[in-house]
Structures are given as structure tokens and as C-alpha cells.
Design a protein around this nucleic acid. Structure first.
Lengths: 199, 199
DNA sequence: TGTACATCAGTGAACGCGCGTTCACTGATGTAC
DNA sequence: TGTACATCAGTGAACGCGCGTTCACTGATGTAC
């Protein structure tokens, strides 16, 4: 919305505009929670550049939007990986990952809802989504193995994923409900699925 | 999209156009799963009428869209009420209601996602959403009372609502996940929450 | 019974807006000779 | 060292489209006298 004054990039640095455009597009996703408002012209204006400049880095508006959604997934995955890195205890890995997941969804509701809703419209997003889900399956499998539990880790992972998703989605967009605490709700998931560490 | 040839309503029957417009708007919601595509002109064309005719029944485009979302909620509530009517057993009431909820979400994904996502943007939708949630709390309270369970019915209702919502939402838009059966997933919710009937 | 008139249920042209995309262009900067 | 030229990083005007909204209108039908 605000027009930025932007100096022209020096000779070999045209790629910088590409990053600026992606950043601007992600900002628009974050603010509106929708892809419909991510117009090529709005992204260009946000980056302080004329609409036609976009075509130097993206084939058309669809390519720009797709790249922006993929960027959202990369940000999310990098954040999750960093949180879980170096934590050997499987219970704590799941716990920290779950907390980070919820935090991301609540702090970046625009990105979160776009990532979830557009997974099947944006081809480039499918591998990222699948990879994140596989990480969850691995974490669950580690826990189940550690406690000699013979449940199917994929099924349990689907339970965790869907239930958690339901909690953060509704928390973000159904203020009419008398919400108990988010922590309490998330704890109840782990408890109902019998995934709490043995004492 | 298709232009319908539509005879002019007779003298006292102008209200019929209002219903036709709402039906057309709900159809557009069902097909696109978004309110952005429910333009005044598209609704008018769908109803076989000129765009300006809409203003005889709605103040502006926002009023038309809001009325359409409220219509979706009315359809949903009427369907739920009909399914549960005349079922005295509290376990079966919850079971039938849950099945109908899932069926509605899967058969009408457009309406469902709009209803959930737009609850806080559309003032007229809040009472309907609240009323549906209260019905759920009542059902849960009946079951808890029947089995002498002292959990908070509101908390358990939030668990059911969020978990179920997560299941149907992801089922509708995350085909990359290896989905187990929908029935199995729903059963696992009732089981994990210890809401199955005693044998 | 006839007729003027109000009302009802709409239509059609026009406006300014933001959109995606095209086309021709500009001006600075590096490179070849 | 000088200069022609290619390339890079963009700009600006223009197109046709669908949008919400306004304004003036039309033609059938019921009602008052």
C-alpha cells in the first residue's frame, strides 16, 4: 500500500528484486490471509517498483503467488527445524514442535490459513506439506517405539495433526466460543492420545 | 454463469426474487468456497436478472453476501435439527449429529469453509454459530450426566468441536496425507474422549 | 364501465476503479576492439 | 586511452475485463374516482 522509494539495483544484483517481491507478497498474505488480494500490482507497489518489473522474475501472476506460498512453507519448516534441532528426547521433540506449530499459527494466521487451504491449488506446496507431515510421523514413531506402543504411527500422526489444526484454526476465527486456555487444550490432545512421558 | 431466462414476477410477488438471489449466491459460495467470487453482478446473472435489480432487496453487495452466509447457517442448522429430532438416547444424538456434521462438511465444502472462516467478519453469522455450539454443549452435558462424569461439558464440547473440525477441514484440502478412513478417525475422537456408551 | 394515476418489478447506460498483460522505451554500466 | 555496443534493470502508456454503484427510464397492473 505504501509506495517505497527504491534505488535501482546495481548491475549484477537484479536477483535482489526477486527477494523483495517475495517478501512483499508474503506480507500481503500475512495481512489479508488470502491469495485473492495478492495482486501483481499490489506486490509491485509494495516493493516500490512498477507492475511490469515483476515479469523479469516471474512468468505471470500465478508464478509469483505460487513462489510466495512456497516461501511461507520454507519459513515455517526452517522455524520448526530450528526449534527441534539438538533435542534428543522424543517427548520433548514432539512437545517443542507442537508448541512451535501452535505459536506459528497464532502469530501468523494469514500465512497459516493460506498454507493449509491452498495446498492442493499450489503444486509447489505439496512436497513441503508432505515433508512436514513426515517429520511428525517420525517424531510419533520415536515416542511409540520408546514406550513399546504398537499403534500405527501414521494414524496417530493424523490424529495429532487434525486435532491440533482444528484447535488453532477455530481459535483464530471463532471468537464467539468460550475458549479454555490454549495450553490446556493442547495438553488434552497429548493426554487423550496417551503420549505423555511415563513418570 | 449461465444466463437464465426469467419471467417477471407478478404484482405482489417481488419477494420471490429475493429468494432466487439468495439461492444463486449460496450456489456461488458452494462452487467457489469463497466470498470474493460472490459478486453482485455474478449473483444477478445467475438469477437471470440485471445487476441493478439486486438493489430492490439488498442495500448493497455486503448485505447480499451477509444474507447468503446466514442462509448457509440456516440450511445447516435445519439439517442438524432434523437429524437429531426425536432421538431420545444421548449417545445416539451425539453420534447422529456428528455424522451429519461430517457429512455436511464433506458434501458442501464451499459452504462449510465459508461459514467457519467468515464467522467473525459477518455479524449476522455469530448468533447462528453460537446456537449450534450450544446445542453441542447440551448434548455433551446429557451424556456426561448419564454416565456420572464430572468433566466440564463446555471443555469437552470444545474438544469435540475443534478435533472434528480439524478432521473434516484437512480431509477436504490436504490430499497429500495418507488418510485413514473418516469413520475410523471420528470413532477415535469419541473413544479418546471416553464418550462411548457403556456396554 | 371508463380512465387517470400510482405502484411494482424491474431494465439499460454510464461512471470510475483495480486488475493482468502487452508493447515500446530508457538510461546506466560493463565489455570488446 | 577512447568509443561503439550489448546488456541489465527497470519505466510508462495502453488494452480489455469485471466490479459496485448511480441515475433515469419502462411497461404492466392494480386502484380511485
Amino acid at each position: 500500500v505504501k509506495a517505497v522509494t527504491r534505488p535501482r539495483n546495481p548491475r549484477g544484483q537484479g536477483e535482489r528484486l526477486r527477494q523483495d517481491l517475495l517478501r512483499a507478497a508474503v506480507d500481503l498474505i500475512a495481512e489479508t490471509g488470502s491469495l485473492d488480494n495478492v495482486s501483481l500490482r499490489a506486490v509491485a507497489k509494495r516493493a516500490g517498483v512498477s507492475p511490469t518489473a515483476v515479469y523479469q522474475h516471474f512468468a505471470d501472476r500465478d508464478a509469483l503467488v505460487e513462489a510466495a506460498v512456497v516461501t511461507c512453507w520454507e519459513d515455517f519448516s526452517a522455524m520448526l527445524a530450528e526449534v527441534v534441532a539438538g533435542e534428543p528426547d522424543p517427548y520433548l521433540r514432539l512437545r517443542k514442535g507442537g508448541d512451535a506449530y501452535v505459536r506459528f499459527a497464532l502469530e501468523h494466521p494469514g500465512q497459516y490459513s493460506v498454507m493449509v487451504e491452498q495446498t492442493d491449488d499450489i503444486p509447489g506446496a505439496t512436497p513441503a506439506a508432505l515433508s512436514a507431515f513426515n517429520d511428525l510421523v517420525t517424531m510419533v514413531a520415536d515416542i511409540l517405539r520408546a514406550r513399546g506402543d504398537d499403534r500405527d504411527p501414521v494414524f496417530v500422526a493424523v490424529q495429532i495433526h487434525t486435532w491440533t489444526h482444528g484447535i488453532v484454526t477455530l481459535a483464530a476465527c471463532a471468537p464467539e466460543i468460550p475458549w479454555p486456555g490454549m495450553d490446556e487444550l493442547m495438553d488434552s490432545v497429548a493426554e487423550a492420545l496417551d503420549l505423555v512421558p511415563p513418570r
